[in-house]
C-alpha cells in the first residue's frame, strides 16, 4: 500500500529551483531513505510534505488524499510527524511537557472543562500523562520525566524528540538526520530504535541521512536527490551501483572508472 506519494513536486526560491518534478512513492511500513549531497533539496522536501512550504507545482498525497498546501498543524493531525536535523525541543519545558504538547491534538476537552476541572478534563489529562510516560519508556527515557529538556544529554534529546513526534500517533515519521553527531554506539542504538518504530508500532519512516552506513543498513528503499531532482531510486544495493549517484557524490569522472565503482560501504571508506 502506498502511504505517501508526491508527483511532479516543484518548489522554487526566487531563481533557485529547490525541487524539480520530484516523484516519490513511500510504501506503508517501509523505511525509506532520502539521500543526496548538501543542497540537494532534502529538507525542502520535508518542509513541503509537512506543510511549512507550499509547493509551486505538483501534488502530495497521503493515504490517498491530497495534502498539498495544507496548513502544518493540519498535516500533523493527519498523522505526519517530524524531527529536526538540529534538535528542536521545547528546551525549557520538562521532558513530560514536551511529550504532552505532542499529544495536543489527541486531548479532547473544551476550555470550560479545563476551567471547571470536570471529570472529563481529569480523565483526559490522566490518560495523556499515562500515554506520555509510556512513550518515554518506549524510547528509553523512563524516570526522566521532570528533567528540563535542555539538560538532557545529546542522545537523550534525540530520543525525546522522537518520543514527542510519536505523541502525535503518526502513520508517517520524517526523521531529519537522526544520527547526526552521534558516536558509533549511540548510532547503533538509534538504528535499533528506528527499526522498533516500524516493527512494533507499524510506523512508516522517511529519513534523511548522511551516514551511508546507516542508510545502507536500515533502508528498504533509497531515493537520491541532486540539485532538486530525483536521480535514482531503488534498494540500497541498486543505488550504490548507480553511476549517476556515484557521479553526484564524487564528481564527474568518478563514474567513468577513475574512482571506486560503488559508493563506499562501511569499512571500505
Amino acid at each position: 500500500m502506498v502511504l505517501l506519494e508526491t508527483s511532479h513536486l516543484t518548489k522554487r526560491f526566487g531563481g533557485l529551483v529547490a525541487l524539480r518534478d520530484v516523484d516519490l512513492v513511500v510504501q506503508e511500513r517501509a523505511i525509506h531513505s532520502v539521500i543526496g549531497p548538501n543542497g540537494a533539496g532534502k529538507t525542502t522536501l520535508f518542509n513541503c510534505i509537512t506543510g511549512f512550504l507550499v509547493p509551486d507545482a505538483g501534488d502530495i498525497r497521503f493515504s490517498g488524499t491530497s495534502i498539498t498546501g495544507l496548513r502544518p498543524d493540519l498535516v500533523a493531525r493527519l498523522g505526519i510527524a517530524r524531527t529536526y536535523q538540529n534538535i528542536r525541543l521545547f528546551r525549557h519545558l520538562s521532558v513530560l511537557d514536551n511529550v504532552l504538547i505532542g499529544l495536543h491534538p489527541h486531548i479532547n476537552y473544551s476550555l470550560l472543562d479545563a476551567i471547571l476541572r470536570t471529570p472529563r478534563y481529569r480523565r483526559a489529562e490522566r490518560a495523556a500523562e499515562r500515554e506520555a510516560r509510556e512513550l518515554l519508556a518506549f524510547v528509553g527515557l523512563a524516570g526522566k520525566e521532570f528533567f528540563t529538556a535542555a539538560n538532557l544529554p545529546y542522545g537523550d534529546q534525540r530520543r525525546l524528540e522522537i518520543a514527542r513526534a510519536l505523541a502525535l500517533r503518526p502513520k508517517l515519521l520524517l526523521l531529519d538526520e537522526p544520527t547526526a553527531g552521534m558516536n558509533p554506539h549511540e548510532t547503533e542504538e538509534m538504528i535499533r530504535l528506528i527499526r522498533r518504530l516500524r516493527d512494533e508500532r507499524g510506523i512508516t519512516i522517511l529519513l534523511i541521512e548522511h551516514d551511508m552506513k546507516v542508510v545502507m543498513n536500515i533502508s528498504d528503499v533509497v531515493t537520491v536527490l541532486d540539485f532538486g531532482e530525483k536521480i535514482a531510486e531503488g534498494t540500497p544495493e541498486e543505488v550504490r551501483r548507480d553511476p549517476r549517484v556515484i557521479e553526484a557524490y564524487l564528481g564527474r569522472g568518478a563514474a567513468s572508472g577513475l574512482g571506486p565503482s560503488t559508493l563506499p560501504l562501511p569499512g571500505e571508506a
Binding site: 522554487r12 509551486d56 501534488d59 491530497s66 498539498t68 496548513r71 493540519l74
Partner: peptide, 11 residues
C-alpha cells in the same frame, strides 16, 4: 481542509 498550490497559502 483548504488546500493551495502555487507557492503561497491564504487563510
Amino acid at each position: 481542509p483548504r488546500r493551495f498550490t502555487g507557492g503561497r497559502r491564504i487563510d
